[in-house]
Write a protein that binds this DNA or RNA. Structure first.
Lengths: 221, 221
DNA sequence: TAGCTAACGTACTGGTTCGTACATTAGAGC
DNA sequence: GCTCTAATGTACGAACCAGTACGTTAGCTA
C-alpha cells in the first residue's frame, strides 16, 4: 500500500488536496483493518493524520464512503500486483505452482487487506455493492489461470473440467485461511500457521495440493 | 406509601435462571454474528429477549464476557458434532473423503459460527485467550484425522509426512472460505459459492482435492 | 408463614462518537 | 495586489450506548 511520507513540515499550513486525501486513506486503512468497521473511530483516524476530522467529511462524505474508498484502493493494489504476474513462459505445471506461490506471498505480505476483506464479508459486501468501481471487475489473476488451465488441459497434463474461478477459489482459500484465521487456529490447536519457520512448508503444501488436484486420475466411483 | 397507581404487571412472571441465561446466549449469538462485536448492541440483545439488559450484566458481567460465553457455546456445539464422527469402518480414502464432506456440511449449516470465528480473528482471538475453557482444547476431528492418516500411511495408500493439523487446516480452509467470503467473492467474480445448485460440485471438489493431495506421487524437483 | 435471597425490573448517567455550523486562509487566476 | 474559492480549522451538538444505582418479587426453606 502506498504511503504518504512527509518531509520536515515547514511552519504554516500547506494545502495539498491530493496529499491530504491520500494521507486520510492510509490512516483509515490501518484503523479499519485494526478495529473493523464499527470498531474504527473517525476521531482516531483524524488524530493520526496531520489534518482534522472535518477533512474526512470534506473529501469522503462520511464513514461509510471512507470505508468504501479504503476498499477500492486496497483492491486496486491487489489488482496492480496481479497485473505484474508473468508465468506464461513456464510449462502449465510450473506456471500454476508459481501462481499459487505468488498468491501465497501476496496474502502473507498484506494482512491488512485480508482483514479488510473479512470485515467486508461480515457486512455482506455492502460497501462493494455501493461502490460501482468494484462490482464484477474480475481479476488479472483469473485471466492468467484461464490461460494456464487451457494450456494444461489441451496438452493432457491437467484433468479436464476444472474451472478457472473454482481453482482461484481453491488457491485463495488456503492462502486466506492461513492469514485470516491464524489467531483462532493458533489458540485452539497451538500452531501458528504464519510462523516463518513453517512458511516454506505451507507454501510447498499449497503448490503440491493444487498440482495433485489438477493432475490426478479422477477415480470414478 | 405508594400514592401513584401501580402499572399493571405482566402476571405470572416465571423465574428460571437457566432458561433466561440460555435465551440471552441464543439472542446474543445471533446479534454478534449479525453485526460483529462492536456493531452488536447490548440493548438490542436485551430487547429481543423476554428479559432486560440488567440480566445480561447479572449473568455475564458485561459485553466482553457475553461474547466470550457465546464463543464457548458455539465451539461446544462444533465439538459435540465432531464427537459424532464415525468413519473408522471405512478404508482410509473413503474415510478422509467422508470426513471432508462432513466438515463441508457442517460449515454450510452453521454460517453464524463461521461469522463468529471471523469476528474473533479480527479481535486476534482475545476472547478465546480470556476464556480458559477454549485454549488448546484440540478437536475430536483432529483425532479422527490422525487415525485415518496413520492407517493410510501405514498401508502405503497415502504419501508419508502429512501432518494431521495441516490436513485439518487444508480441509477447513476450503469449507471456511466458501462460506465466510461468499459475499465479496460473489460481488467480485459474479459467482455465488454457496449456490445450492453448485453445492455437490464444491463438495466433490473438496474431496477430490484432499484425496489427490494425499495419494499423489510427490515429484522431486 | 415468615424470612431470605436469587432473580428480576426501571430509570438513569456519563462518556463517547458521528456529524456539522461556522469561521478562516492559502494560493491560483486575473 | 486583489479577488475568489478550494481547502482547512474550531467548537459544538445530538444521539447513542455500555454500564449501574436502586427498588421489587418469586419462590424456596426453616
Amino acid at each position: 500500500m502506498t504511503s504518504v511520507e512527509e518531509p520536515a513540515r515547514p511552519r504554516g499550513r500547506i494545502r495539498d488536496a491530493a496529499r491530504t486525501r491520500a494521507e486520510i486513506l492510509d490512516v483509515a486503512t490501518r484503523e479499519f483493518a485494526r478495529a473493523g468497521y464499527d470498531g474504527a473511530r473517525v476521531d482516531e483516524i483524524a488524530a493520526r493524520t496531520r489534518t482534522t476530522k472535518r477533512m474526512i467529511y470534506y473529501y469522503f462524505g462520511g464513514k461509510q464512503q471512507l470505508f468504501t474508498a479504503v476498499l477500492e484502493r486496497a483492491y486496486g493494489v491487489i489488482r496492480d500486483a496481479e497485473q505484474q504476474l508473468d508465468v506464461d513462459h513456464l510449462d502449465p505445471v510450473a506456471a500454476i505452482r508459481r501462481l499459487a506461490e505468488l498468491t501465497f506471498d501476496h496474502h502473507e505480505q498484506h494482512p491488512d487487506f485480508i482483514r479488510l476483506v473479512s470485515i467486508e464479508n461480515i457486512h455482506e459486501a455492502e460497501h462493494i455493492a455501493a461502490s460501482g468501481k468494484l462490482t464484477a471487475i474480475g481479476s488479472p489473476a483469473l485471466d492468467v489461470i484461464r490461460r494456464i488451465l487451457a494450456a494444461g488441459q489441451e496438452s493432457g497434463l491437467f484433468t479436464a473440467d476444472v474451472d478457472a474461478v473454482d481453482l482461484h477459489a481453491m488457491i485463495s482459500s488456503f492462502c486466506f485461511f492461513r492469514v485470516a484465521n491464524r489467531h483462532t487456529f493458533g489458540a485452539l490447536f497451538g500452531r501458528d500457521l504464519t510462523d516463518p519457520a513453517r512458511r516454506e512448508h505451507y507454501r510447498a503444501m499449497l503448490g503440491d495440493m493444487v498440482i495433485a488436484y489438477l493432475t490426478a486420475d479422477r477415480a470414478e466411483d
